[in-house]
Amino acid sequence: MDSIGFGTQLFQYIITGITIGSVYGLVALGFNIIYNSTEIINLAQGDFVMLGGMSSVFFLTVLHLPLAISVILAVLFAFIVGALLERIAIWPLKNANQVTLILITLAISLILEGSVMLILGRNPYGLPYFTGSKTIFLFGAAIFPQYIWVIGISAVTVVVMNYFFNKTVTGKAMKACSDNPTSASLMGIPVKKMILLSFAISALIGAVAGAAITPSLLMEYDRGPMLTIKGFAAAIIGGLGSFGGAIVGGLILGISESLFAGLISSGYKDAASLAILLLILFIKPSGMFGKK
């Protein structure tokens, strides 16, 4: 087989960048949902991704359920875990300040990692590909079917979330809480319930991303913190609190990392993504789509 040309290479870098970027985007989206209703930075967001991947593995390999059911159960499980964690750790602290709450999310992250390690061990795990492993070649660039799944699932998640927050009563109520919790509660919106829901939905989105990437990128118990950092960077780039911004921020981060690794040096790609984060903070501290 012939070696490939520069155009094809560039195309390949962008495809990889979009895939990785949509995962960052989903983590950023989860950040924003919680941030909007509580102004907490949830440092366990990356661990929700890990939880989604690892609980899929658990349902598939330990309970021997079919792949599709395992993934659905894993996502539902994360939804419940997210709600439970809020109820146990955040809810009882009525007047705690933000810093305390953020530290609690750090504790949640450690608890999630620790419990997954105890149950499934420290080894990395994979899942079967959702639809076979046959690579599709487009203009000479290889597209893994699993990557199409990751991108597609991200897109669907964004559309569903958009619909939920703009068209449904519950979604609108959650948005109202983020705009002004006092007025929202005066209008009869149960603010506390909305916060509970925001944790559950964030965990669900994280788990969706986790289940989608595990077949091709594997998953292990300590994958969370790195994803938290990248997702946080994406949320900052896009503007903290903005849903569209989260996805755009994720894609910018993913594509620039991938292009930098491909065209300049693969050893310094994390430095490149941090440089972009700093650049955005210098030019527009509120992020690209952030509120002033």
Binding site: F6, Y13, L217, S258
Partner: peptide, 16 residues
Amino acid sequence: GPKDTDMSVQLTKIKG
């Protein structure tokens, strides 16, 4: 890097 989860960029470069 030790925490990297995708090497398709580097491998594409090598494919060239």
